[in-house]
């Protein structure tokens, strides 16, 4: 590769070190490297600010881990995006215009080491993503199991186009979802008709509501504040309006609310 046109041919065979510096000093290579740094930086910045800026308040561990994954996967994708985009941009800047084809370029049919390197690179990338995901899935499952005893249970029923929440231990049924902060909660979700998907947005969890079967999800709200509950599965005419509000509140507030609803606190 060292005998590129716009590069002087040396008289003496270059040492590997010289070849490497020669390669890097080549115009197009230098430009590509510059572009690579810039693109990588752009993606990292995008990852750092885009999701925190646009995603809603983080009110549970699950929500936190969703956001962290989006940020970190952007980080680790950034160099790959950097390579791809810098090569593309470099070539784009070299464009040939006019009505006749450009002169032929170098006849590079393949490059074994590069192909291997690239494959190994994407393999590593994939392994990181997989391992990260599996560990996270596992830790959520473990948390769910550990919290089972101390958790409060909310039975969620989706029906066209309304959410109903039943707190069996407290003996109340409502249409807004209120939860005590710091207490694990288990949602038993089902549907009275077609499929819905129960999505308390700020808690970062979601599960389908199916007819005649109960699906279960778990979380622990970590901070006090308002939450929205939406339906994330097309369920017919008023799917868009199948939403309701709720709140994560302090334990005393929660107990007061339960009592006001006519329920009993433990």
């Amino acid at each position: 590769m060292a005998n590129h046109d716009d590069h002087a041919v040396e008289a003496l065979p270059p040492t590997p070190g010289e070849r490497a510096t020669g390669f890097i000093k080549r115009n197009d290579v230098a430009r590509t490297i510059g572009l690579f740094v810039a693109y990588t930086a752009i993606f990292i910045i995008l990852g750092k600010y885009f999701y925190p800026k646009w995603m809603p308040t983080i009110m549970s561990k699950e929500m936190k881990s969703a956001e962290t994954i989006m940020i970190w996967f952007t980080y680790i994708s950034a160099p790959i995006a950097g390579i791809v985009l810098s090569v593309a941009t470099n070539s784009f800047l070299n464009a040939h215009r006019g009505d006749t084809p450009p002169p032929d370029g170098p006849a590079i049919r393949t490059n074994g080491p590069i192909v291997v390197l690239w494959t190994v690179g994407s393999l590593l990338f994939t392994i990181v993503a997989i391992v990260w995901g599996l560990l996270e899935v596992n830790s959520q499952a473990v948390a769910a199991a550990n919290d089972a005893k101390s958790a409060i249970t909310v039975e969620v029923t989706g029906s066209q186009w309304l959410w109903t929440f039943n707190y069996p231990a407290q003996g109340i049924e409502t249409h807004d979802l209120n939860l005590p902060v710091g207490v694990p909660v288990i949602f038993d979700v089902k549907s009275a008709d077609v499929n819905h998907s129960f999505w308390p947005v700020q808690l970062g969890i979601k599960v389908d509501a199916n007819a005649q079967v109960t699906t279960v999800i778990h979380t622990t709200p970590t901070m006090v504040g308002a939450i929205e509950v939406k339906c994330a599965e097309l369920c017919g005419l008023y799917h868009a309006y199948m939403e309701t509000n709720g709140a994560v509140m302090s334990k005393t507030d929660f107990n007061a609310w339960v009592t006001a609803q006519g329920g009993h606190t433990a």
Binding site: N90, F92, N94, A95, R97, P102
Partner: peptide, 14 residues
Amino acid sequence: LVLIGTIWRGKPWL
């Protein structure tokens, strides 16, 4: 890889 390898060091006819 195939696509960027192909355009690398070429002068693309836009």
